[in-house]
Every structure is written in C-alpha cells, then in structure tokens.
Amino acid sequence: MSCFETIQDYAFRSLGYGERLLPRSDFTLCEHFTLIGSGMIWNIYYGVLAVVTGFFLANLLAVAKNSNSSWARKPAEWFIFLFRGSPLFIQFFFAYSLFLNLKSVSSFFDPLSSAWAGALIVLFLNTAAYSAEIFYGALQSIPRGDIEAADAYGLTGWSRFRKVMWPTTMRLAWPAYTNEAIFLFHATTLVFVSGFPAWRQKGDALYYAKYLADKTFNPFVPYPILAFYFILLTLVIIFFFGLINKRLNRHLPQSQRTKVKYKPNLMR
C-alpha cells in the first residue's frame, strides 16, 4: 500500500471516516505519521475551542476577582483556586463520574459523557481559571497614570473599562497568556488518558501513539513523532499569538513593546 493510499484511508480516521480497521501488523512510518496526525485533529479541536471560550469566562472571572463586592469576588477566587490547585488529571476523573450521574437524571446530559463535549467543558473551565489569574494579575498592574488619565477625560464605568483598562490588561497579560494557550494544547493529550474512554478507536494523537507503541512494542518511534507534531503546533501558536501581540502593542514606540516570549508561567 502506498503512502498516498494510507493517507486516504487514515487521514480522518480519528473522526470516523476512511478505513474502519486500524492497521494491525507491518506498520510503516507513513502509517505512524498519518494516524498520529489524524489524532492531532482532536488536540486542535479541544485546544482552539477551549482557548476561545475560556477567554471570555476568564475575563469575567478576572473582573469578578478584582471587584470590591465579596459576592462577586469570593466565588471567583474559589473557582480559580479549585481549578488551579488540583491536577487536570483528577479534574477529568471527577467530571467524567459527575457527567455519568447527570446522564441518569436526564437524557439532555447524554453528550457530556463523551469526550468531545465532556472533556471540552473541563478544559474550558480549567483554562478559564488559569487565564483569569493571568488577567487578574495584569489588571492589578495597570499603571495608575492610565486610570487617572481616563478619569481626567471624564470616562467612567463601562466605557473606562472598555476603552482604557481592558486594552492595557490584554497588552500586559498577552505574553503570559500565550504560554497558557500552549500549555492548554499540551494538556489536551490527557483527555483519553484519564477518565474519558475512546469510542470506535477514535482518539487524539496520544491515543494513536499509544496504540502504535502497543502494537509494535516499540515506544521509540510513535512518541517522538507525537513530539514532532507538538513542536510544530507550538510554533504555529506562537506565530498567531505574536500577530495579536503586535496589534495590541501597535501604538507603542518600538522599544517599549513587550515581546511574546515562551515562558513557563503557568501549566497544569
């Protein structure tokens, strides 16, 4: 079987298209690359959706944590502590058993026990908590002068937040937030390791790498391939977040711009 055929058969195997049976013997490098690459679709799916949705919740949480009212502040603080203080691994486990229980209450919750919905919710809440902490830190370090200037212009309430505070927060938080996004993508590999089962052998990149390592009894080929894909993905994320960062900093003189540096600020 040529490599082209392999790609045709297995490129979308992780979504359930193409050849139903996974290869069982005489594995080629091409099959390794295709299957693990196919699994990357799920990693990207979880990563992109969780980052995008988590971004909004994180903003709410950060503002709530910064609020003077303890009704808003306390829940936000607890939420952030709970999700940042416990390993994602254990969060997945609890979410899965919770979702199974919900399922018996009403069929409305049925999708939650499958990874595409359930794991996404966990990742969404998790990244929201981590990002909220980053945004909160940035919110705290807005230069006093910015706020005084806004006051001088007569800006108050929502418009002050929207036009002055929020853009500065984003600008200050962006480098750290980039790292959080990268770690979130890395964390998507945990989905099928803890709690959530794989259906019809549709799994993420790590699932297929494990499958191949198990069938070939050789861990030295599939895992480095997985690593290769993730290094590529990391570079792509850094590129996109760098573009946004440029936009956030476009009003500043060249020397004052913050660069997106891949720093291990937060991980799970």
Binding site: R20, L21, L22, R24, P197, A198, W199, R200, Q201, K210, Y211, D214
Partner: peptide, 22 residues
C-alpha cells in the same frame, strides 16, 4: 467495553460492534 490493547478489544472491532476502551 473492553480493556485497551487486549485481544478482546481487537475482537470487538472485528465484529463491527462499537468499541469503548478503558
């Protein structure tokens, strides 16, 4: 349901049933 990486998991795939692996 079957344990991952067992001969039973392979068998389920062959029968055409939906395999869930743990």
């Amino acid at each position: 349901a079957a344990q991952t990486a067992t001969i039973q998991a392979n068998h389920v795939v062959d029968t055409g049933a939906t395999l869930v692996e743990y």
